[in-house]
């Protein structure tokens, strides 16, 4: 029983980090109908940012710098690689995203070499806590909490603020949104900023547990989180969160059962199943057009 709880906790924690990244996919898809293949690599770059920020600044300033740098990177990618293609076919934007993904991986290899670099230990995060019969580091306990709080905050922002309203309007209808006086580019930049911010927070939680960053650190988690977003219903924030948790828990259970070689394949089996039986995912967009 205790080992089940223990693995459950590990799974929920991993799932929380996945969820934060999956939200980025879902947000960008919602507004641009684009799968941002570079998102996993933005997450990887956030890992490197921390290594360098931490070496030069106290940890609390380093965290803030990482968040800011990642947001700037995400918004800059949108401005440079996607926004010039606003009226191009969607396939061109998709290809541009794949290009950016490779660019970031190669840039990281060039700048930091392909050898893994060790991720710094943020004071306190690795401290071992014992709650009842559960033993885990602080980061394992706080990851799911951080995830829930941030995603709830994001949902409130989207439903109750002016910028949230403009995000919903733009994701529904570019032209009608512009006719309301909404600035398209500002809204899209803001969406990328939010997605990148969550990826940066996710990277701190994820890499603190993994302790290593290398140029391809973002590929597999990126793919998994994309699957999580599809599983939850791409475009839906609660969907991305639940998808992230399902993947994290499923993967951990497989590892616990001694099937660690199969744990990555699990993600893709899940993807195939969902695409075959419920392509819109758990919370797939309901269509109520009547025009």
């Amino acid at each position: 029983m205790d080992t089940i709880l223990q693995h459950g906790l590990t799974g929920i924690s991993l799932g929380g980090a996945y969820a934060l990244i999956a939200i980025g996919y879902t947000l960008v898809y919602g507004i641009l109908r684009l799968i941002n293949f570079a998102h996993g690599d933005i997450f990887m770059m956030a890992g490197y940012f921390m290594i360098f920020a931490f070496a030069n600044f106290p940890w609390y300033i380093a965290i803030i710098l990482v968040l800011i740098a990642t947001v700037i990177l995400g918004v800059a990618i949108e401005k440079a690689a996607y926004s010039p293609l606003r009226n191009a076919p969607r396939m061109s934007v998709m290809i541009s995203a794949i290009g950016v993904s490779y660019l970031l991986q190669n840039l990281a290899t060039y700048l930091f070499t392909a050898l893994p670099m060790s991720y710094p230990e943020i004071p306190g995060l690795k401290k071992i806590l014992i709650i009842g019969n559960l033993t885990a580091s602080l980061v394992t306990f706080i990851t799911p909490i951080v995830t829930i709080v941030l995603s709830a905050g994001l949902i409130i922002l989207i439903n109750n603020t002016k910028i949230g309203m403009s995000m919903r309007a733009v994701s529904r209808d570019y032209e009608a949104a512009q006719l309301m006086g909404i600035k398209l580019n500002t809204t899209i930049s803001f969406t990328f900023a939010v997605g990148s911010l969550l990826a940066a927070i996710g990277s701190i939680l994820y890499f603190t547990d993994r302790m290593m960053v290398f140029p391809f650190s973002g590929s597999l988690p990126g793919l998994k989180c994309f699957v999580a977003a599809v599983l939850g219903g791409i475009g839906s924030i609660p969907g991305a969160v639940i998808g992230g948790f399902i993947l994290g828990i499923g993967e951990t259970i497989l590892i616990a059962c001694g099937q660690s070689t199969f744990s990555d394949a699990f993600t893709f089996v899940l993807l195939i199943i969902i695409l075959l039986f419920r392509p819109t995912g758990i919370f797939g967009e309901k269509v109520i057009d009547k025009v």
Partner: peptide, 16 residues
């Protein structure tokens, strides 16, 4: 905007 309420649609008209 089909997935907003009537009131939200009216409010978004006053976005600026």
């Amino acid at each position: 905007f089909p997935d907003m309420t009537v009131l939200e649609n009216i409010k978004i008209g006053a976005y600026l």
